[in-house]
């Protein structure tokens, strides 16, 4: 076991998978000579050459669409999109092509494509660079959407995503790239489709994904000072959603708060709350509270950005309401 950053863990997963399987290759903007906008592809061009680490022009439709084509021919492209915001340019290739080809082709072609991309805000990058859009893709049958939050998961889930025969949207986050954590030595995978209890507790379940898991953990610590034992459930896989783990946690704690950085309306908290009402209604002792971003385009101003993004204190306040 060694301590590594989230970024290093992703880089290791890519390197090991490219060694293991000659069909794995990378396409994206800045992935080659620049070694990735967030340095996730560091050293890979040197090691594997330009046939397998392809710098692309700023053409997201072509990047994702050619990834779909190559995947149909049996390769395993790992596409890097600089931020989730830029997927919008090529969204037809994701939603109406990658996710549907296996079905529309009667199972005669599959699309083992991974789209790696960071989402979220908090870096004063304004309205068009700070969005949380992962639930758009989690809405689509035929897609898988995962959001690892630790270096260990980043490596294990990227490997599992690359080996998966279906299109996977692999959500990263700028605030997580430098996060350090233990990464096991040797070969391992973290299976897709499973949530993870990041902290055990008895009184309330805080259910979050991606960077919001950190807010949930901070909130749980603050609540502990008041004698409240909060359980933190990391959703980790938005599609398929591990309803069993989420429902199991709330059946135990009887209270729930969902946390997401994106907008509340039609969001991930809504899906989780509906699941809890369906499957844990009799166990709930209080209405489910949702914490989410303010429903505005992300403002550039630091003052306004802080007001737009949920904080650990917002999570604590929501938990107190649910506990009142």
């Amino acid at each position: 076991m060694a301590t590594k950053t989230y970024r290093e863990a992703l880089n290791e997963a890519l390197r090991e998978e490219m060694h293991r399987d000659p069909d794995v290759f990378i396409i994206g903007e800045e992935v080659g000579k620049f070694e990735g906008s967030y340095r996730v592809t560091q050293g890979l061009l040197k090691e594997f050459g330009p046939m397998r680490v392809k710098d692309a022009p700023i053409s997201e439709t072509a990047i994702i669409g050619s990834g779909v084509g190559a995947a149909m021919l049996g390769l395993r492209p790992v596409v890097e999109i600089m931020t989730i915001n830029f997927i919008l340019v090529g969204i037809d290739q994701v939603v109406s092509n990658a996710a549907k080809i296996s079905y529309m082709f009667g199972g005669r072609a599959k699309v083992p494509l991974v789209i790696r991309t960071p989402g979220g805000g908090g870096h004063q990058l304004g309205a068009q660079h700070s969005q949380s859009l992962e639930h758009w893709f989690a809405h689509i049958p035929g897609m898988k959407v995962v959001a690892p939050t630790t270096p260990m998961e980043a490596k294990g889930m990227l490997k599992a995503s690359i080996r998966d025969d279906n299109p996977v949207l692999f959500l990263e986050n700028l605030a997580l790239y430098n996060l350090r954590g233990d990464v096991p030595d040797g070969e391992y995978e973290v299976p897709l489709g499973r949530a993870d209890i990041k902290r055990e507790g008895e009184d309330i379940s805080i259910i979050a994904h991606s960077r919001s898991v950190q807010l949930a953990l901070q909130a749980a610590e603050k609540l502990e000072q008041d004698g409240v034992s909060a359980e933190v459930v990391d959703v980790r896989s938005l599609r398929p959603l591990d309803r069993e783990t989420i429902v199991g946690s709330v059946r135990k704690t009887n209270r729930a708060v969902t946390v997401e950085e994106g907008w509340m309306s039609y969001g991930i908290g809504a899906e989780i709350a509906a699941t809890l009402v369906d499957e844990a209604f009799d166990y709930l002792d209080a209405p489910i509270k949702r914490v989410a971003g303010r429903e505005v385009p992300m403002p550039y101003s630091k003052v306004l950005e802080r007001a737009a993004i949920p904080s650990a204190d917002d999570v604590v306040a929501a938990a107190r309401e649910a506990l009142a």
Binding site: I58, A127, Y300
Partner: peptide, 26 residues
């Protein structure tokens, strides 16, 4: 341009017919 909402460099000014732009290019 926007009362601090828009990114710097994304020039906009209604009275001067300067149209606020985008971070994603083109």
């Amino acid at each position: 341009a926007s009362g601090g909402r828009q990114m710097p460099g994304h020039y906009g000014h209604r009275a001067h017919n300067v149209v606020s732009g985008s971070s994603p290019i083109a």
